[in-house]
Design a protein around this nucleic acid. Sequence first.
DNA 1: CCCATATTTGCAACATTGTTGCATTTGGAA
DNA 2: TTCCAAATGCAACAATGTTGCAAATATGGG
Lengths: 135, 135
Amino acid sequence: MQALEILQQHNLKKTSPRLAIIEALQSSGEPLAEAEISIKMGSHYDRTTFYRSMLTLEEAGILHRIIVDKLLVKYALNPAGPTVKSQTDHAHFYCNQCKKLVCLEEIHPGPYRLPAGFQTSESEVIIKGLCNKCS
Amino acid sequence: MQALEILQQHNLKKTSPRLAIIEALQSSGEPLAEAEISIKMGSHYDRTTFYRSMLTLEEAGILHRIIVDKLLVKYALNPAGPTVKSQTDHAHFYCNQCKKLVCLEEIHPGPYRLPAGFQTSESEVIIKGLCNKCS
DNA sequence: CCCATATTTGCAACATTGTTGCATTTGGAA
DNA sequence: TTCCAAATGCAACAATGTTGCAAATATGGG
């Protein structure tokens, strides 16, 4: 689906930073960090706008954020269609060698057997190792 | 066990920053962020020393680091005794209300059924929600 | 098409977490 | 006590993210 259509579907204004972010992720085909997206967006790049756009796009269910390590965060487009919980409720794999991140859409972790009185609202799983190309 | 003994057991020099860090975590009884530890350590506090000490203590298996969210990292003492993989290979629970982190030592996630060719070296699971005191 | 306005952008400044280089200090052993 | 490798402490820097505010813009109504 075109970036324009995605924004339209979610009733968001079709501004150029938002379009550029979505297109950068689409053209890459894999989750990217801010630095990687900024390179694809070229010179008219503002970090504040980027972070505010990401908040808007995440709240709309267009993409999700993956915290890989202390100072390493990547952003991934969600599959098209109506927002379903399982779209973001999946595990992620990070390759320690090629530094690429993969959404493991078919792995839905949990439920976990928590001690009495604990209530889960969300969970994040990140698996690290070597991907199929690097092993 | 005393902080001094812990360092001795791992053949580490018994320097005052290391002792202060371990004692801060012991007196708290729960995982703490850098800012929380620095308050407990008082005025003679240096951030570089803190990070280098944490690296040393983590490599020695005395404590482990938990990435809660983009800019929120906590550190937890490991149980005493010889280093066992299961000590750090457990899930963590973060309470969205009281902001406290709990090591769920009895929850050992995985193994995960990864696509062909993927090799796991480690994994991290963080469960968020409401703890037993806040629910 | 143009105008009004609420939203969004872009800039400056700042906050937090973490790292690197280097001179000084110190723990621990001879 | 003396010596030296290891560790500390300081300055500077890097990366990620946030806040306040003025200027620009998307979009709906006339």
